[in-house]
C-alpha cells in the first residue's frame, strides 16, 4: 500500500492551495477529486461576470492546476483512504487527511419553497453549473435569495446571457405556481411572472460520507465569498 504524509480530498481552490504548500514543504501528498481539478472556480471561469469578479482565484487555480497532479477518483473512506475510480479501488495510507470537499447550497424545501415540484426550480449552484455548460434554463428567471453579493453577480450574469431577471428577498413561503413547469411564484403578497425559479439561502458543508479528516476551505466557511475561503486556507497553512 502506498503511504503518504497527506491525502487531500477535493481539488478546488482550497485543496490545490493546500497541496501546493505541502509539496513545497517537502511532504509526500496525494490529491483526489471526483470530477476535475479546479472545483467551482472552474465553473465561475466559464461565466463572464463571474470570471472578472473571481479573476484572482481563477488565475491562481489555473496556475496550480498546471503544477499539481490531481488524481480523478472518489474517496469513499478516509481511514485508510479508499478511492474508487475508473481503475478500480485503490487503498492508501495517510498520516493526515485534509477535507477540502467544499460547500453545497441549501435545499429549496428548507427555504420554504412550496407548491408543486414542477420543472424549472433550481438552487443557485445548479443553475450556475448548467449555464456554465451553455445550457439554457428558461427565459424569465426569478432569483429568490437572501442578501449576498453573489446574488447581484448572478443577476447580472443571467441578464448578460439574455434572460429577463427579477430579484426577491427570501421571506416567508415561496409558493410555486404551475402545472408542469414554473408559471409564476408567489412570495408574501407579491406574485412574480416567471418560468424559472432560482433559490439561494446559504450553503452547508459537503461531506455526505462523513469522511474523517481536517476540514479546510469552503467546507468550513460555506460561502461564495472566496476571500473568506482564502483566509481559512491561509490560517490552516500557517500552522503547518
Amino acid at each position: 500500500m502506498v503511504a503518504v504524509d497527506y491525502v487531500v480530498i477535493g481539488a478546488g481552490y482550497a485543496g490545490l492551495k493546500c497541496a501546493e504548500t505541502l509539496m513545497d514543504k517537502g511532504f509526500k501528498i496525494l490529491i483526489f477529486d471526483m470530477r476535475e481539478s479546479g472545483g467551482e472556480i472552474s465553473v465561475f471561469s466559464k461565466l463572464s461576470d463571474f470570471s472578472s469578479k473571481y479573476e484572482k482565484y481563477i488565475e491562481e487555480v489555473e496556475e496550480l492546476k498546471k503544477d499539481i497532479p490531481v488524481d480523478i477518483g472518489t474517496v469513499i473512506k478516509s481511514k485508510p483512504v479508499i478511492v474508487n475510480s475508473g481503475n478500480g479501488l485503490k487503498r492508501f495510507e495517510a498520516k493526515r487527511v485534509l477535507l477540502c470537499t467544499g460547500a453545497t447550497d441549501v435545499a429549496p424545501a428548507k427555504l420554504n419553497v412550496l407548491g408543486k415540484r414542477v420543472a424549472g426550480i433550481y438552487t443557485l449552484e445548479t443553475a450556475l453549473r448548467l449555464i456554465s455548460e451553455n445550457n439554457r434554463i428558461g427565459n424569465e428567471v426569478l432569483i429568490a435569495a437572501k442578501e449576498d453579493k453573489i446574488v447581484e453577480l448572478a443577476e447580472s450574469q443571467f441578464y448578460r446571457l439574455g434572460y429577463e431577471v427579477e430579484l426577491s428577498e427570501l421571506y416567508g413561503d415561496i409558493s410555486v405556481i404551475g402545472k408542469d413547469r414554473v408559471e409564476g411564484v408567489k412570495i408574501g403578497e407579491e406574485t412574480y411572472n416567471c418560468d424559472t425559479l432560482v433559490v439561494y439561502g446559504g450553503r452547508s458543508s459537503f461531506n455526505p460520507l462523513k469522511l474523517r479528516g481536517t476540514p479546510v476551505g469552503n467546507v468550513v466557511t460555506c460561502t461564495y465569498d472566496y476571500s473568506k475561503v482564502e483566509e481559512n486556507v491561509k490560517n490552516f497553512l500557517s500552522k503547518i
Binding site: 470530477r35 453545497t104 429549496p108 449552484e125 445548479t126 453549473r129 455548460e133 445550457n135 459537503f206 455526505p208
Partner: peptide
C-alpha cells in the same frame, strides 16, 4: 435524493 450537489452533473450527463 439527499442534496442538490450533483443535480447539474446528472443533467449535463443526460443532456
Amino acid at each position: 435524493m439527499d442534496c442538490n450537489k450533483c443535480h447539474a452533473d446528472i443533467i449535463v450527463l443526460m443532456q
